[in-house]
Design a protein around this nucleic acid. Sequence first.
DNA 1: GCGACAG
DNA 2: ATCTTGTCGC
Length: 217
Amino acid sequence: MDIVKLKNIQEKLVQRVIREGRPYIEYIGGVDLAFSGDRRFAFVTIVVIKFPDLEVVEVVKEKDNVKFPYIPGFLAFRELPPILKALRRVRTKIDLMMVDGHGIAHPRRLGIASHLGVVKNIPTIGVAKSILVGKFETPDDRKGSYSYIYDRDEIIGVVLRTKKGTKPIFLSIGHMISLDYAIEITLKCVKGYRIPEPTRLAHIEVENMRRGQNALW
DNA sequence: GCGACAG
DNA sequence: ATCTTGTCGC
């Protein structure tokens, strides 16, 4: 594993990222991963919900061997293989994928959400729980308020308050969607919790999976 | 050189 | 991400 080569891959793929688009959305997918205690296995869950009613229409669970360590800025090389494996079994035609992690709010503008979008050629949004790069002001404590995340003079995402009284989330364009539309869709996916339904439900499901509640995995 | 650093 | 109990606040 050579960091220089991985950077080259990211710098090549980032050229294909499209930062605009207002795709018609009927089905939204949410992905999340969990790892076994010994770190050898990765569990993945993809939850597909119908938009805008947010009703779950499909859940796919997959397990894979971990082949790469976690290195800030290179999360996709660790988590994308398991995700792609699970994605092959999804039957619903997904119009938008929400990923746990950043999109272009990344040092080289190719966080895992953007990486997935480019590789699969689908619209994606990055929904992270903490900052990776950039500066921002804390948004007002009202649901829906947000402030921009800047890296130098570039706007790379927003810090979005999805629920009053809780920490905001960090949203960024993944691929083939504008920031405004990403914010709009994400807010419509919030049901009363900090995390929007797609990734929130995926997280709950993958956590059940990891605990061996399904020892069959 | 020092600190930051998605999940 | 995972490990882990209680505790503070709406």
